[in-house]
Amino acid sequence: MDLHLEHVTLVYPDGESTLTAVDDVSLTVPAGTTTALLGPSGAGKSSLLAVAAGLTAPSWGQVRIGESVVFEPTTSVADATRVRRDRIGMVFQAPQLLGSLTALEQLELHAHLRGEKPASLRDRSLELLDAVGVVDHAAKRPAQLSGGQRQRIAIARALVGEPDVLLVDEPTSALDHERGVQVVELITGLARSTGAATVLVSHDSSTLASVDATVQMVDARLDSV
């Protein structure tokens, strides 16, 4: 399903005045494609991603997945959490794996969050770990893995719930150019194969050759689409 950001505006209180972090942004990301969101620090990329993920409610505007409105100013925290669990996959700037879980359990956790038996996701989890090239490390904990391996497991974790939307925040910030390119290719490839509408926030346009579209954010607004 497509992801639609419609007139999204995010305003924070800033002392006695306000700070507009996202200013009337509209963006559509078709299913199975990857749109890179570029821009300098402070342009509002992460704020837009937070609204798209339901981590922050928009001040105005709305977020749709397909035809259903999932986030708007009145969306409750519980509803936003449920949407994130069921329809959105997230990859953070740091892998953010849970230290006590093995690579396989990082993925199986998703089933437990849904109230299902973790083992019900075992086959898909192993397939995804294989797809990102770390299936041989399925029984290892994060402390036993390299930074690159942890990042790949984080990507697999984001996709294990078969989300409609994949949101990726600066996945290459800690990688060299070659590995950055590989990770972006991996994400765009997985987005195509899973049909997830993917938004990838990045500060490094040189690694984005494989993405389907690129948009630039400047001063809280989209510069071009």
């Binding site: 993920a53 981590l55 925290v77 519980a78 959490t81 449920r82 994130r84 669990r85 069921d86 959105i88 997230m90 953070f92 953010q96 849970l98 230290g99 956790l109 998703h110 969050l113 974790r157």
Partner: peptide, 16 residues
């Protein structure tokens, strides 16, 4: 706290 933030971001509810 960092793990809890990640779990919430992944869709873990507060009651969970």
């Amino acid at each position: 706290s960092a793990d809890i933030a990640v779990l919430k971001a992944l869709g873990a509810s507060t009651p969970y």
